[in-house]
Amino acid sequence: AGLEKQLAIELKVKQGAENMIQTYSNGSTKDRKLLLTAQQMLQDSKTKIDIIRMQLRRALQ
């Protein structure tokens, strides 16, 4: 149950990062740093999601 909860949280983080990227990508240059931060968050989240999914698969075997 813990892994499913972690996965749900990470999927929400990923969605939030995608929303932030959309918001900041057509903003001013001061938003550039926020855009880069959001892109890093998205990448980190995708990595965590992959790891959690692997752990889930392993647990189900």
Rank of each mutant, 00 (worst) to 15 (best):
L11G: 14
D50Q: 08
V13M: 12
I52R: 01
T37H: 14
Q43N: 06
I9Q: 13
G27M: 02
L3D: 15
A1M: 02
D44F: 14
M20R: 03
E10H: 03
S45T: 13
V13A: 12
R57H: 11
Q6P: 00
G27D: 09
G27I: 08
A59T: 05
D50C: 08
L11H: 05
R57K: 13
Q39F: 03
Y24H: 11
G16Y: 14
N26D: 12
R58S: 07
Q15S: 14
N26V: 07
I21Y: 04
T29V: 05
Q6C: 01
T29S: 10
T37E: 08
N19Y: 02
G2D: 15
E10P: 07
L42R: 03
L56H: 01
D31C: 15
A8H: 08
Q43V: 06
E10G: 03
L7H: 01
D44L: 09
Q39L: 03
I52V: 05
M41L: 13
Q43G: 01
N26T: 11
K14I: 03
K5Q: 08
A59C: 13
M54L: 12
N26Y: 00
T47G: 12
S45W: 15
R53I: 06
K12V: 01
K14M: 06
E18N: 12
R57P: 01
E18P: 08
A38W: 08
Q40C: 02
M20D: 06
R58V: 04
Q39R: 15
K12S: 12
A38I: 15
L60M: 09
Q40L: 01
K14A: 06
L7P: 04
D44G: 11
I21W: 11
D50T: 02
Q39A: 03
I21A: 11
D44Q: 13
L11T: 13
S28M: 05
R57N: 03
G2C: 07
M20Q: 07
M54K: 15
Q22I: 06
D50G: 14
Q22S: 12
A8Q: 12
A59K: 14
Y24A: 14
V13C: 00
L36K: 14
A59Y: 10
K46Q: 07
V13Y: 01
L60E: 12
S28D: 03
M54I: 08
K46Y: 02
L56G: 09
K46P: 00
M41K: 08
L36W: 08
K46M: 09
T47W: 02
D44V: 12
R53N: 04
V13D: 02
Q6V: 09
Y24V: 09
E4F: 08
A38V: 10
Q39T: 02
Q55H: 08
T37F: 13
L56V: 09
T47D: 10
I9S: 14
R53A: 05
E4D: 09
T37Y: 08
D50R: 14
L36S: 14
Q40I: 01
I21N: 13
Q6S: 11
Q22G: 13
I49A: 01
K14V: 04
K5C: 05
I9K: 15
S25M: 06
A17M: 06
L11C: 06
K14E: 09
S28Y: 01
Q55A: 08
K5E: 13
A59N: 10
Q55L: 01
T29Q: 04
T47L: 08
G27A: 07
L34W: 14
M41G: 00
Q22W: 04
T29M: 09
G27K: 13
T37V: 10
L42G: 00
Q61S: 14
L34R: 09
S25G: 10
K33M: 04
Q43S: 09
Y24N: 15
Q40F: 00
Q22F: 04
A17D: 05
L3H: 10
L7F: 05
I9T: 14
A17H: 05
L34D: 01
L42Y: 06
A17K: 12
K46I: 05
R53D: 00
Q43L: 05
N26E: 09
R32Y: 05
K5H: 13
A17E: 11
Q40P: 01
Q55G: 12
Q22Y: 04
K48F: 05
L42T: 00
V13E: 13
K48V: 04
Q61P: 02
L3G: 10
K12D: 05
